[in-house]
Design a protein around this nucleic acid. Structure first.
Length: 263
DNA sequence: CGATTATGATTAA
DNA sequence: TAATCCTAATCGC
């Protein structure tokens, strides 16, 4: 689930549910017992997302830093739902939230938050982010563009689904050297990131296909029809019907169409 | 019921 | 590049 849109959506939803009063915190699993006791019955002052990082501020020196990693989940639950013993952290406001399998769940001071965010590239979902910073991060990089897009110091919040889909949408071959992209392509890549991630937050889901290509009646999108290439190897391209390819880049799979995205 | 896999990232080798 | 961390859904037997 977790690319940047998921975290920004979480940030909003947690704000709605938890900023209203004191937060009740516990660690049913026990691995975050101390941290939970520190924030228990405190007010949440701020909830913010930077790329795939979530920060819940209780005080200058008490900020909950959460990163879901590959398998982490942070899900809303009815107040009466009994947490399983894998729930690292349970937060309770107007609803309960159960955090499982996070890569990071720690209390940090503001100083550490700044260290984390300083290492991130521009986040398409944050105001003030500039496409020029994204372009600057790619200059002189011979690394394949598909690898650069997963580098959080180049652009923050893109994951394996979005990178494959964006390159398809713009007809860019995944292995094009980053610095070979034209200014116009970089601008488009940034623009697509902004619009797609915003839509991802709105839908709480990644949907990149346009109605014209979905083969579905408008508004009635079947679960398997939301993406162009991700995890569709061997299936026909929704635009040209060629067989979708899969390539391993730096250990991660990347799907693409060799007709729509050059050879 | 065990193996596999996953929208991530760091560390070791 | 490989191993590692963390959880849960899915798949094959």
């Amino acid at each position: 689930m977790p690319e940047g849109h998921t975290i920004h959506r979480l940030s909003k939803d947690l704000r709605t549910d938890l900023v209203t009063g004191l937060v009740t915190a516990s660690s049913p699993q026990g691995r975050f017992e101390h941290g939970a006791s520190v924030i228990n019955q405190k007010s949440l002052l701020k909830s913010e997302a930077f790329g795939k990082h979530l920060f819940l501020t209780f005080s200058e020196e008490t900020i909950l830093h959460i990163h879901l990693g590959l398998i982490g989940k942070f899900r809303p639950q009815a107040l009466e739902t009994e947490p399983s013993d894998t729930v690292r952290l349970r937060l309770e406001g107007t609803r309960a939230w159960h955090l499982t399998g996070p890569q990071t769940c720690a209390l940090i001071p503001r100083e550490e938050l700044l260290r984390v965010t300083d290492d991130l590239g521009p986040d398409p979902l944050r105001r003030g982010s500039k496409w020029e910073d994204f372009a600057a991060g790619l200059a002189n990089r011979k690394t394949p563009i598909a690898i650069s897009l997963l580098d959080q110091s180049v652009i923050a919040g893109i994951g394996n689904v979005y990178r494959a889909e964006f390159l398809f949408l713009l007809g860019i071959h995944p292995e094009r050297p980053s610095s070979d992209l034209t200014q116009s392509e970089l601008k488009d890549l940034w623009a697509v990131s902004v619009s797609q991630l915003r839509q991802g937050v709105r839908l709480n889901r990644i949907v990149t296909v346009s109605n014209a290509d979905s083969g579905a009646t408008p508004g009635r999108l079947k679960p398997g029809d939301a993406l162009y290439v991700y995890k569709r190897e061997g299936q026909p391209c929704r635009r040209c019907a060629s067989s979708i390819k899969i390539t391993k880049l730096a250990g991660r799979s990347c799907w693409w169409c060799e007709t729509c995205q050059g050879q």
